[in-house]
């Protein structure tokens, strides 16, 4: 009897302790593997990850046997990839390759598929997934502002996730935003977006800046140059680009005609030949200054170097400077 009582007490104690430990462990497990909640609950003995590997190899075989993904087989393709990620929600290749395989036939499903991946905390460092989603949206919903808006969100996510975002990702983002503005002149739109970004962060230190676009100033300069080149007669564009140059590059020396940066001592722009405001030379002898004093005559350099003149409204761009031939020195009389 005593022994039976001991057994019963042990059973009850074991149930209580086991239940408590299991509950705590379950929470810890979810913290370590937050993607577990996304997993398929089919009872397969805990072999979900392995099942996903097998299904992956099977889908490769299947896809290899297809000529293309078409209306007839797209549902099957989707079903197979869905199965893989249901067993392993972290299977990045399945998301990437899967989404791209059926993005043509079913772009909405592809985006939804990728969105699910983007929401997986384990994949928060994968920038390709949101990029692909944005890409599919951009290409499938060219005239749909909602899709473009959504694409912008994905591109932003892609840029934020990457420590050094790829150029094409940033450009895709900018193009999407430009498209969203709805302007006829896409270059003007691009410039406006870049300038808007610059303005948000103007005056902030680099560490404080919130812009996700790297090398913003370079991009502004390049965008302005491209815009001027493609639309030389667009007055709005020219005015705007001047304004941008004035504000963004007020401390820099840029040719007002072609917007190229020129070096200290240059009298003419080396890209378009236009005369430019000279800077960085000694006031006495005209030598290019290397530091605080002129190395030829010893004159102290001014505290503030000469700045490029501000572009006034209505001013015509200066004419292209004709090359002035240097006077040929008279031949020395033969002795």
């Amino acid at each position: 009897m005593k022994s039976t009582l001991i057994h019963i007490v042990l059973i009850i104690a074991a149930i209580l302790i086991g239940g408590a430990i299991a509950g705590h462990m379950h929470e810890e497990q979810n913290k370590q593997m937050p993607y577990k909640s996304l997993e398929n609950t089919t009872p397969i003995g805990g072999f979900h990850k392995f099942a996903s590997d097998i299904d992956w190899m099977l889908v490769i075989q299947y896809m290899g046997g297809l000529k293309s993904v078409s209306k007839e087989n797209v549902d099957e393709v989707i079903k197979r990839f869905e199965k893989i990620v249901s067993y392993d929600p972290n299977f990045e290749s399945a998301y990437e390759i899967g989404a791209m395989s059926f993005s043509v036939e079913n772009p909405e499903k592809a985006v939804e598929f990728l969105e699910r991946a983007c929401n997986n905390p384990q994949l928060k460092n994968n920038w390709k997934l949101p990029f692909y989603a944005g890409f599919i949206l951009t290409h499938s919903g060219k005239d749909d502002p909602e899709k473009v808006k959504k694409a912008i969100g994905f591109y932003e996510m892609a840029i934020k996730r990457s420590p050094t975002p790829e150029m094409y990702v940033v450009n895709s983002y900018l193009r999407a935003r430009a498209k969203a503005m709805g302007l006829n002149n896409d270059k003007l739109a691009m410039l406006k977006i870049l300038f808007g970004e610059w303005k948000k962060n103007a005056g902030m230190r680099e560490i404080e800046t919130t812009s996700i676009i790297p090398d913003l100033n370079q991009k502004i300069l390049k965008a302005a140059q491209e815009a001027r080149r493609e639309y030389p007669d667009d007055k709005e564009l020219i005015e705007f680009s001047k304004k941008v140059m004035q504000e963004v590059f007020k401390d820099q020396h840029i040719c007002t005609y072609c917007l190229s940066i020129y070096a200290p001592g240059d009298k003419f722009c080396s890209c378009c030949g236009q005369s430019v405001q000279v800077f960085g030379t000694c006031q006495k002898c005209g030598t290019v200054l290397k530091a605080g004093f002129c190395h030829k005559c010893g004159t102290k350099a001014p505290a503030v170097l000469v700045q490029a003149p501000s572009v006034q409204e209505g001013m015509e761009p200066p004419p292209v400077a004709k090359k002035v031939a240097k006077p040929v020195p008279a031949k020395k009389a033969a002795k």
């Binding site: 074991a14 149930i15 239940g19 299991a22 509950g23 462990m25 497990q29 593997m33 805990g46 990850k49």
Partner: peptide, 15 residues
């Protein structure tokens, strides 16, 4: 859970 029923999934860290 874990008291009466076995919870072997607690050992499942395969992924």
């Amino acid at each position: 859970y874990g008291g009466i029923l076995p919870a072997l999934d607690l050992y499942n860290f395969k992924s």
